[in-house]
Design a protein around this nucleic acid. Structure first.
Lengths: 251, 251
DNA sequence: CCCATTCTTGCATGTTTATGCTTACTCTGC
DNA sequence: GCAGAGTAAGCATAAACATGCAAGAATGGG
């Protein structure tokens, strides 16, 4: 049985029964309990389940739905998110963008970290419910595609914020086009958020490098760092380095 | 049975019955009383319950309400939610409160209904991502216990809203105490939202009837209707009817 | 097509955790 | 203040756990 198929089945069970007992599933699938435990550990790391002694329980339903839709290679995202999460220091205020990579940051953030998180993403906010961090939601008209609040009201609310750090998600990081995203309002919102933070770091998982979308957010040099784990030698990466992009290597 | 699931069940019972008797639950679950006592001690340490001699009592109602959110919504909630969802007409603007019953309303709402939903709950907002409805999020400081935005900023944002309908969630509907909830800020926010809608209906699933929490939201006659499916002949219901509460029967 | 590399899986190891039992103590109501 | 129910704490045991390791499968370049 394929590992991916097994994980899907586990998520199905979780949705159907509301719980997973590692021993039972292992017996049913004819695999070892260790394998199931490993799977559950990974699903927990991805924020799709909550690991408990003996098995697993569902994560917050909204988060699961959203994250499952973006069924992409989680490794790259995960490494980038972990690196970004380490930038969040106790007591600091961080603006967290929307999107699946930002969602991965919430999973990588220690639950007992005392900090303030400002976000315009309802899924990010929901994912932080079980963290100690103080959460400030920026309201506005909800953009269904990316689950973030945008528009005039949101921008106005954002102007009241002053943060130490902004973790920015984009859809493209390109040597010439700079940092881009797929929607004009979102791009404007991201710019506004960037203006409210002392430092801005881009969450650039592998597939974003070399890509460009229609709407410019910021030029490459407009941010403090671009966190990525894309292979250093690849053509787009060399182009970015030649363009003077402040690359930060994820690990 | 998973230990974590058992704790969820305990919280469920606490929300439903208002108390837990260690001996009874132990017998019912087929575990030792010690295990239940240990669980209750831990829930108490986490602030989710108050340990008393013989069992446990709910902590602040708001806290328990939130913690039980992962558990299965009883039929009563669904019936109330379905009735409430039918009040939402195409083209209208509805303010949807936070809480598990409001969440059930999102599930009962047709996905292709063209309307505008205003909410201060991030979980409600996330649940509406796949609906056609336009969603406006009211931002502010996130109140972790119930996943809603509260406070000065949220109230201010709410003042800019004008809606046809407000679906209000509370923790208690009592003949004398009126409509109540477990947190002062939340109560104020609910009042503000009620003032922005032409009609206000209360989502009063069975367990809310006859219950009272610490903070008053509105008097019984301050709302257009109280949607419930509690048995008509019960004592609390007769008291409510005698007090002139505008009961609407769910079906 | 083959070999090297990587990934997955299951097993053995030592460690941690949950649970029920016992015992001695505490609380509550009479 | 006394009886009985309820309780915390310690202890033993079995289950669940993380980790390292090795065998087999999958993958990719030559």
């Amino acid at each position: 049985m394929l590992a991916a198929a097994r994980k899907h089945l586990l998520l199905d069970r979780l949705a159907r029964d509301g719980r997973i007992v590692a021993k039972d599933v292992a017996a049913e699938l004819g695999t070892s309990e260790d394998t199931i435990r490993r799977d559950l550990r990974e699903l927990d790391a991805e924020g799709l389940a909550v690991r408990v002694y003996g098995g697993a329980l569902p994560a917050s339903p909204a988060v699961v739905d959203y994250a499952a839709r973006a069924s992409v290679a989680p490794d790259s995202k995960h490494r980038v998110a972990a690196t970004a999460a380490r930038l969040v220091t106790p007591g600091s205020t961080v603006i967290l963008d929307g999107g699946t990579t930002a969602l991965a940051v919430t999973a990588a953030l220690p639950r007992d970290l005392d900090c303030t998180v400002v976000t315009h993403s309802v899924t990010v906010a929901a994912a932080l419910l079980e963290h100690r961090a103080e959460v400030i939601v920026i309201g506005g008209r909800l953009f269904k595609h990316s689950a973030v609040a945008c528009g005039a009201g949101a921008a106005e609310a954002a102007l009241g914020v002053s943060a130490d750090l902004f973790l920015l998600g984009v859809t493209g990081v390109h040597a010439e086009a700079g940092l881009t995203t797929g929607d004009a309002d979102e791009a404007a919102m991201k710019r506004t958020l960037a203006s409210r933070a002392a430092d801005t770091y881009v969450l650039a998982s592998e597939e974003k490098i070399g890509a460009a979308s229609r709407f410019a957010v910021l030029p490459l040099e407009g941010v403090t760092g671009i966190i990525t784990d894309a292979a250093a030698g690849s053509a787009p990466m060399r182009a970015l380095e030649a363009a003077g992009a402040p690359i930060v290597r994820a690990s």
